[in-house]
Design a protein around this nucleic acid. Structure first.
Lengths: 247, 247
DNA sequence: AGAATACCTTGATACAAATCAAGCGAAGGT
DNA sequence: ACCTTCGCTTGATTTGTATCAAGGTATTCT
């Protein structure tokens, strides 16, 4: 939760880069109003702490940790998850650069889930208290933050629907399309990407076992919809994939 | 969305009653800070519109409707749901008196789900714009509203976990326990209540078919955990029900 | 009151995904 | 370089829930 030393800020520049590299992404909803209304970007540096570097497997926060900040992903990928009473893991989300996580801690002042880096990642810490102070002065910041939370709600509800109404094939196809479109938003290839998460994580997110996920990938490959080489995914036919996802 | 005529305010008094009858419930999180900080309850009347009466089957809002307010349930029960691409219904929540719904509309300015009364109900309309204005002046109101949204997120994530990791029996048991504890919060019997929703709704909420829900109720009754007479539920053994829900 | 309709229950069967099992390849540690 | 571990794939079998089917009960409407 501490400010990182100055010499690290050269490699992880935050938050300036966001506005340049992610002008159209989720995070811009927080950064942009600040920049626009104050006409002073240094203001941003004041509220958003410099990037926290995380190694693969590091926890950003754990279930029951005190809540003090939300986090914007700068690079890499973070998964959030809960552990059920019988010890199994439920992945509740994958967060890519430009996306914000940690809002689950607001209601009880402790986090209701854990967040773990799936690969070497950097996040920006946005101290909640200062965000609150600032929001009272900048109504647009407040409304953008509410939008962020509301989006989290609708996305969770989409996942509920996906899990309870769709087949294994539809679920996997939908996730691939989701990652694809999030890549597109980041100006990356929507057809060619590396999955940062394991098959187990995918299964735990979609309510499936590893074996089923693996079989679905094989089936989709046999159909020619996509090619999969371990973690490398190449989508050959977006149209057909959308049909299979029935979205 | 309009203020109701004055003569109706005698039967549906709002929001005074909330603070008396639901001092410990969710809604208090919105009402109380207002009352405490202003020392003037009429202030509340200014922001919270008088109750909207709804008949069974009436819609409070529909998917894609313009978003202008959130709603606090005053009496009755409201379900929220989405329609999937193939026409099936996914119930995303049941809202009892003292609970707030409609936050899904904030991100896109249109509702992402529909809300329908399961029985004769009354709700309070809380115009979002005025809530926002007021929140900039009352930081505690703002933080309470954020808490409300955060709780919605954690509850949705609990449902995700329930659906993807638990058996039919566990899901139904968990729902019964949830309704039971929400009744307790309203000072109603936690052991004896009437279900406002149909078996179909329960199934659509828990990701099960009607038949499975019905079979589970029969099984639980055979075990002596609860007694079910159509919509009347009597929980005989909370302990055992918790075990069955594995919560 | 009686008919029509919606809702609920129970049984038989089918099926998709879980589980059990085994082998393979890549990565990490000594 | 070898061994161990972890992650991924594929096959055989089991199982929980969906589906199909039919009858019963409550509710609504005329």
């Amino acid at each position: 939760m501490t400010h990182l030393a100055a010499e690290q800020s050269t490699t992880i520049q935050c938050p300036h880069d966001f506005q340049i590299s992610c002008g159209n992404c989720r995070l811009s909803k927080i950064c942009l109003p600040l920049a626009l209304e104050t006409q002073d970007v240094t203001y941003l540096n004041d509220i958003i702490q410099r990037g926290k570097p995380l190694q693969k497997g590091d926890h950003l926060y754990r279930d029951k940790d005190a809540f003090s900040a939300v986090y914007a992903v700068r690079s890499g990928c973070i998964k959030t998850y809960r552990i059920t009473d019988d010890g199994r893991e439920q992945v509740t989300g994958f967060y890519f650069p430009g996306e914000v996580l940690g809002m689950d801690g607001i209601s009880e002042n402790t986090h209701a889930s854990s967040a773990k880096a799936l690969e070497t990642s950097a996040v920006c810490e946005i101290p909640f208290e200062r965000l609150g102070e600032l929001a009272t002065r900048l109504p647009s910041l407040q409304s953008h933050f509410l939008q962020l939370m509301s989006r989290e709600i609708t996305e969770d509800q989409q996942l509920i629907t996906l899990i309870s109404k769709n087949s294994a094939e539809e679920r996997v196809a939908a996730l691939m399309l989701s990652i694809s479109s999030r890549n597109a938003r980041r100006k990356l290839s929507p057809s060619n990407f590396r999955l940062p998460m394991s098959r187990i994580d995918i299964g735990n997110y979609l309510g499936l076992t590893v074996e089923t996920v693996s079989r679905v990938f094989s089936r989709l490959q046999k159909l020619g919809v996509l090619e999969v080489a371990n973690k490398e995914i190449q989508i050959n036919d977006h149209e057909q994939l959308r049909d299979l996802a029935s979205i």
